[in-house]
Structure formats: C-alpha cells, structure tokens
Design a protein around this nucleic acid. Structure first.
Lengths: 209, 209
DNA sequence: CTTAAAAGTAAACAAGTGTTCACATTTTGG
DNA sequence: CCAAAATGTGAACACTTGTTTACTTTTAAG
C-alpha cells in the first residue's frame, strides 16, 4: 500500500515547517518514521521530490477550495449593488474558513509555516508565499471592494485582510489559541458590519445624485 | 581595526536572512567576504557566536529606539483625555518609523527576515519574533488604546497595527516598493483620523453622562 | 504454494559540515 | 626598526550530507 509514501510526505512537511527545507536531513525524516533513509528512496527519487510533491498537493487543494467558495465575479461587475451584501458576507465566511485552514488544518498549517521559512530562498517560493498569504489575498479583497464601488479599496482591503494575516502569526505563538480564533472572527464581523454600513451610505448618496 | 568583525556580522546576517541560519555555512560567509573560514574563527569563536552577536545588537538597538520614541505611560494613565490626541499622533509617528526600519534599514530589514525564518526553530526565537513583530506591537497598541478608554481595544489595535505587519511582507515581494510605503502611511493616517474622530464622540458622550 | 514485485536494510560513496592547528603575513606600538 | 599582537592561510579533523548499491524481507496475486 502507498501509506508509507503519505506518511513520509506529512512527516517531511512537519519537519520542513519547523526547521526549513535545508536544515532537515533525509535521515531526520526517515528516523522520525522509524525507517532507514534507504527505504525512503523507494518512494521518492530524492529529497527535492518530497518538497515538490508537497507544493503540488497544495496547488491542487487550493484550486479546489477556491472553487468551492468562488464568487460569481462576472455577474458582480455588472450589478454590484444587488449582490453587495451577499458578496461581503461570502467574503467574510471565506476568510473565516481560510483562517481555520492556515492555522488548524493538518496540512494547511504546517504548509503555511514551511512557506514562511522558504519565502526568501528563491523567486518561486517568494511568488507562492505572496500568492497564498500576502499580496494575493490582499489583491483579491482589493479587487472585490473595487468592483463593489468602494472608495480607497486598497486601504479598506488592508484593514479587512491584514488582521487575519497578523493573527496567523499571533496564533503560532499564542498559549490560548482559541482566544486568537475568537479575535479573528470578531475582527471579521466588525469589518463586515462597517463595510455594509458604509456601503449603505454610499448607495444613498448615489441615489440622491 | 575591528572592521572585519563588523563585515562578517553584516554578511552573515544578510545570508541568514535569505537562507536561514542552518542553511548558511561558515564557508559561505567567509567566501562572500573573500577570506578563508579559518580567518573567520579569529573573530568569532564559532558560527553560533555570530548569530548571538546579531541578536545582542538588535536588543541594544531596539531598547535605544524604543527609548527615543517612548510615551510617558505613567502620566497617560492618569489623564488620558488630555494626552489622547498627542498620544495617538506619537503612536502614528512611531509606527511610520518602525515601518521604515523593518523594511529599509540595513540592519533592521535583514534582521526581520532572519527572525521570520528562525521563529519556529526554538522557543527563544519564537519569543523574539512575537516580541518584535507580532504579539508584542499588537499588545503595545492594545494597552495604549485601552488606557485611552477606547472600547474593544484589542480589535482596534489589530486594525491599527495589522496593516503594517502585512505590508512588511508585501514590501518584500513588491516591485514598486515606494508604493507600499505610501500605502502603509495612508493606512496609518486614515486609522489615526478614525481613532481621534471616535475619541471625540466618546468624550462627548462621557461629558453628557 | 510459488513467484515476482514492493519495501526495507546496511554499508559505501564523494562532497560538504563546523572546528582546530601549525604556520605565514600584516599591523601596530614602543 | 623590531617585537609582539592581530589577522589570514590551508590542510587536517571527525562527522554529516544526499544518493546509490547489493542484498534481504514483506506483501500480494496467480
């Protein structure tokens, strides 16, 4: 059965997430699993292949997860007012799920930490880090708020997304992890309220004009 | 002269910031400086000593920088209304300076990246990362807003500080770095306005009661 | 039960690790 | 100028690295 191959991948990911790719040896991974490193090479051609396999899995998982929460952006651009409320609520729900995923999921959480450690090693990793965790989500929220006709969409997007991003790190070092999750949810709810409130004002002004 | 020792420290820091402590060899550091690794051991007893020296320098620098921008917290607790405006403006100025330091300073910027890469290796590094970049600043702003009698100080602190924290990372991967600095400043100014505005309302309510 | 594929072992490989040492050069102060 | 201290060299040290190899055990299917 291919169960060992899976165990290797998970164990390697957890070690990479703690020490970084270079600092983890093939012996470390094998030792953690109670096998010799020779055995490991029956499942992966080399150390780099394990890493690549981890990246490939995230790319698959992320595409799938994004699909499940996808917002109909084409429609949104046409009639933003109508879908505004729904869009912001969906964004909030998606953000909560993302927070849970990057902090608590058994694959997502170590992957985020691993990517954090690899982000300065090469352009490819810098790209992935930005895409998944920094400029990517920020740009996504900016575009959404922009298409909903909010002014200063970039600043608003930063205020909306940045607390999540900060709390990923706070979560890592927190003793009371549940309190951090609660704070993240509160921040999202509060900002959702604020945005829907301001959108109402904007819409009223628009109608008057 | 002790110039070589200084060059070693800076070169090592820049390499650690890119690849992480473990992934950088003593030969790498020496090679980058055009000396042999034997020479390096005339200045530092071992590899770890270079790292410790970097940490020690940051501890000194940070204490000094914090002192320069220190707010009189004791006084603040006694008469928050009077100093509120000033406090928030000082906080904003301090935050701007911190942003510049962690993104552009020739010591601060690589140190932040190094710490980012080392944060999961041991408790000591986790503590320093939290202290300098995550829970530390967040807690500082929370306490300040709390002492100024703002409600939900933790959420407000997150909204105030998180954009800075996010933009550190965005800055790292950005092509137009100046645009990121400008966005950071905008976020701070906007949030300063919002907080002083809300403080006025709160104070009015307080006076009525 | 047999057999072939899959999975694991232990030793070997060259290359690289941090560190030390005996020696050479350079810098500095009396 | 000369001696001593500081700085640099390059080879050696024992050890670890990623990877391969020859050989054994386990697993699974006909």
């Amino acid at each position: 059965m291919g169960q060992t191959k899976e165990k290797i991948l998970i164990t390697a990911l957890e070690l990479f997430a703690q020490n970084g790719y270079e600092a983890v040896s093939v012996s470390d991974i094998a030792g953690q699993l109670g096998i010799t490193k020779g055995a490991l090479y029956k499942h992966y051609t080399n150390k780099r292949a394990i890493f690549d396999c981890i990246i490939a899995r995230m790319e698959r998982q992320d595409a799938q997860r994004a699909g499940e929460f996808a917002l109909p952006e084409g429609i949104l651009a046409q009639m933003p007012e109508k879908y505004c409320h729904t869009s912001l609520e969906q964004l909030t729900a998606y953000s909560k799920e993302q927070f849970r995923y990057w902090t608590q999921d058994s694959f997502g959480a170590p992957f985020r930490r691993m990517l954090t450690l690899e982000q300065y090693r090469c352009d490819e990793m810098a790209r992935l880090y930005q895409q998944y965790l920094a400029a990517g989500p920020l740009g996504y929220v900016t575009d959404l708020l922009g298409s909903l006709r909010f002014d200063h969409p970039q600043q608003r997007a930063a205020v909306f997304y940045a607390p999540m991003f900060l709390l990923y790190s706070v979560y890592d070092g927190a003793e009371d992890k549940e309190a951090v999750v609660a704070l993240a949810d509160d921040c999202l709810e509060r900002e959702l309220q604020r945005l829907t409130g301001e959108q109402n004002i904007e819409r009223t002004i628009h109608k008057k004009a």
